[in-house]
Nucleic acid binder design. Structure first.
Lengths: 340, 340
DNA sequence: CTGAAAGCGCTTACAG
DNA sequence: CTGAAAGCGCTTACAG
């Protein structure tokens, strides 16, 4: 279909200049005269010429590309990846594009599939790692890469010594807890765990506890079982509360997936939400909007999240380090907390 | 951090062979002797050597990369992209990876952002286009690229003259309709439109009509207003039915997003699902599982979808054409149709 | 089975 | 402001 490749030499011939001048004109070198540049651009247009990026990259050593790795739970089908990470992925690609970078995306789960030698193969200038904190071997692998010099930033790492970007979990938890208090709930539980590899859970628990004590209320932790699926974690937490004779009338769940499980169990137990029980989650999952009743949540600003991750990585690459960053969050008030 | 790049010449020196032999050994050329290969691999390992893909690609003209473009509705935030396309994206990346290809991902919406010269810049060997049928300028753009020789396959195109992969919409619609009939519903509407740019909607309407007539039932179209959001389309369709005094007791919605809007409206109108009204959608959106009641749906096999798209594109690239392909679908039976 | 050499298509000192 | 030339790091005919 396509013929012999058009090169900068062809453009040079048509424009009546040397090949080096074509290159200068096209890369935007200000040294070339306006007349020359115009002629070159016109010739390139006529020949439908486009720079072969492989040659350019080989020469410059820059790829103009960022690798994005989404860490999945082992064996998880790609359609079942937490939609939170898909939203984050979309925002990262958009932010990279806005900065003039391409994004090379891969999903990785099992140890055999772990691979991150993008810089070594000169496929990318740096890596953004996002995804399930639970896949420890994956995070260990990328930590070892980082230790051997990879330019790498992440979201969701269980490690603190990474270059990370995170939701403002503390503030989000305060907002969620404060919202339940405002709505008149007093006996408010936290569905989560104190000792989680998921740092964000710890931060949310702290924000919750702090806000409770400020209001003169007693924090109450309903410990989840991390070996269960998120959904089951939420269901079991609610069953535990029912078994204890409903010692609380509201809950802040560590994440939406736990909250959605909890909501389902509340419905099955006939506990009316929000009248008898208030519930709020964290993450702003789209599915929460379709739940019954629609689930209130704390949503991070995804657009900022993408931009922060990309800018942090570019800072690393350009040796111009950026502090760890917190993504602002906001209350998504829906029916599950809307008690009069 | 990282030192001077290690090249195949360094490996050659350490292994005591020529640089061309290193290249042969590493690309797997069977002509090199086992002993030599072993020495080369060992030297490469010792030096932590990795092929510079830009140089390799420049030389071979192959990129080992597929570009995946997700077409969004103009102005749509990346977090709001229909999760269906995210699931499909994930499956495509997985399938490409299984075939040894990298995936370069971008999200495009407005006309200024449309861009697909991946082959011209030698960034990819071909393109996979997925996303919202509604963004006509985007599809027009990629059609013009295809016409000028781009290797391109798609999912969701309004055009029939593309190389496409699609759900088996006809069969899926028959399954959905047959399922409602089995559950005892008789007056079953189709929420959608006959004249849609969305070819899949047409196919679903046909499968529905065919199955209804087979059962001696009369098809009934509740026309949606394509200018509204999907959610509103579903809500309005239900309001229309209520206004007409509930002439039907079940509906097959053209897609899950319409069905979820419909479900919400049914709830607000106090129409009990599935007892008074049965509802089933199409797409297998994750959100349906959390709806109230959970929404029955027709789910395409995402894994096959990704594999088919990739294999079809590779067929095009290798001049070994593959017929248009239909992705198998299955019934996802949930509570919204579970009437005794 | 291996080596010496050409060449993929650019960018960028170096000269003028 | 422009041109001639080197070189980025590979793969692959061509010889032997």
């Amino acid at each position: 279909m396509r013929q012999q490749r058009v090169t900068s030499f062809d453009v040079a011939a048509l424009a009546g200049v040397s090949q080096s001048t074509v290159s200068r004109a096209l890369t935007g070198d200000t040294v070339v005269s306006d007349g020359t540049r115009t002629r070159v651009l016109e010739a390139a247009r006529q020949l439908n010429y486009h720079v072969d990026e492989n040659a350019a990259r080989l020469r410059t050593g820059k790829t103009g590309t960022l690798a994005v790795v989404v860490i999945c739970r082992p064996g998880e089908q790609r359609k079942d990846v937490n939609p939170f990470y898909y939203s984050l992925l979309g925002s990262i690609c958009a932010a990279a594009s806005a900065r003039g970078f391409e994004t090379l995306v891969s999903f990785q789960d099992t140890e055999e599939s772990l691979w991150g030698l993008y810089e070594e193969q000169r496929k990318a200038d740096g890596l953004i790692i996002i995804g399930s904190t639970a896949n420890r071997p994956a995070w260990d692998y990328f930590r070892s890469l980082r230790d051997s010099g990879a330019q790498l930033v992440c979201w969701g790492s269980p490690f603190d010594d990474f270059d990370w970007v995170r939701s403002d979990n503390h503030e989000g938890a305060r907002i969620a807890t404060g919202h339940l208090i405002e709505r008149g709930y007093r006996r408010i539980a936290y569905l989560g765990t104190e000792q989680s590899p998921q740092r964000q859970f710890k931060e949310r628990y702290q924000g919750y506890g702090e806000r409770m004590r400020e209001a003169g209320l007693e924090p109450r932790l309903v410990e989840i079982d991390e070996r269960l699926s998120r959904d089951e974690q939420g269901r079991k937490a609610i069953r535990d509360l029912a078994g204890a004779g409903w010692p609380v009338d509201a809950a802040f769940a560590a994440c939406d997936e736990i909250a959605l499980g909890a909501l389902e169990e509340l419905r099955q137990l006939g506990r009316s939400v929000p009248d008898e029980f208030g519930l709020i989650g964290f993450d702003g999952n789209r599915a929460g909007a379709y739940a019954s009743p629609p689930l209130s949540s704390i949503e991070p600003d995804f657009q900022s999240a993408g931009t922060m991750l990309v800018d942090k990585l570019l800072g690393l690459i350009n040796d111009d380090p950026v502090e760890p960053l917190r993504v602002p969050v906001r209350l998504l008030e829906r029916e599950s907390t809307r008690r009069n």
